[in-house]
């Protein structure tokens, strides 16, 4: 084990982050849109639920996922009947965990973007006989570009850095659930500091680049609302 650096966990982590981010965009867009435009009283509650992963320790999420995704639970049991596999200790389970964990990092930037655009441009599009979908994709989405870029970078970066939840529901299976943060933890515990340093440096550089990207996005794409 000492010697060559195993990059398997790195690729697995990138795959996990990419798939989770994609799912987050699909789920997060309508949610953020609704939050940006609703006058419902439920808004505060839904906003709070969305933001919970920001304040809860990963151990709480990990513990609940361990309980509610287990084969004996409703969700975990259904998954076993459908696929014949556990949801915990699987790559799919990690995707579920990551989507929950990174939800606020997708929804909040999108919601802010949608709110700053307001209704006016869409109403203008409607007077030009654009359908709702048409207006959303040709007017709202380009205007919310900054929000989308921020959401993608932050969600992806958080998915990469996730540790506590994966530690509890992953099971440390090489090629399936042994992501980079777990690999670093294991290297540290087995005194393989050289490998721990290499992987940590990769994460450090990646996180720095991601944050620089977010801040440049915020400078270079000022809100085009007028």
């Amino acid at each position: 084990m000492i010697g060559a650096l195993d990059l398997g966990p790195l690729w697995l982590t990138l795959r996990l982050a990419a798939i989770s981010t994609l799912i987050l965009l699909i789920l997060g867009t309508p949610l953020a849109w609704w939050l940006a435009h609703t006058g419902s009283r439920a808004k505060s509650v839904i906003e709070a639920v969305t933001a919970l992963p920001l304040v809860l320790p990963p151990t709480v999420l990990g513990f609940y996922l361990l309980v509610f995704l287990s084969p004996g639970s409703a969700i975990g049991g259904m998954w076993v009947r459908m696929t014949g596999e556990n949801l915990t200790f699987s790559f799919s389970g990690l995707v579920v965990a990551t989507v929950i964990y990174a939800l606020p990092f997708t929804v909040q930037p999108l919601q802010a973007s949608f709110e700053s655009i307001g209704r006016a441009p869409l109403e203008a599009a409607a007077t030009l006989r654009a359908s709702g979908w048409d207006a959303f994709f040709t007017v709202a989405t380009p205007m919310a570009l900054r929000g989308y870029l921020t959401a993608v970078v932050l969600s992806f970066a958080h998915a990469i850095g996730e540790f506590g939840v994966v530690l509890m529901v992953g099971g440390n299976i090489p090629g399936r659930t042994k992501v980079i943060s777990i690999a670093i933890y294991e290297h540290v515990e087995t005194l393989e500091y050289a490998q721990a340093h290499m992987l940590s440096l990769i994460l450090l550089v990646f996180s720095f680049v991601a944050l620089v990207a977010v801040y440049s996005i915020n400078r270079r794409f000022p809100l085009r609302v007028g």
Binding site: S70, F89, G171
Partner: peptide, 11 residues
């Protein structure tokens, strides 16, 4: 942790 994995029915 092994114990918790089994006690919660995940393994």
């Amino acid at each position: 942790q092994v114990f918790s994995m089994v006690a919660t029915g995940n393994a």
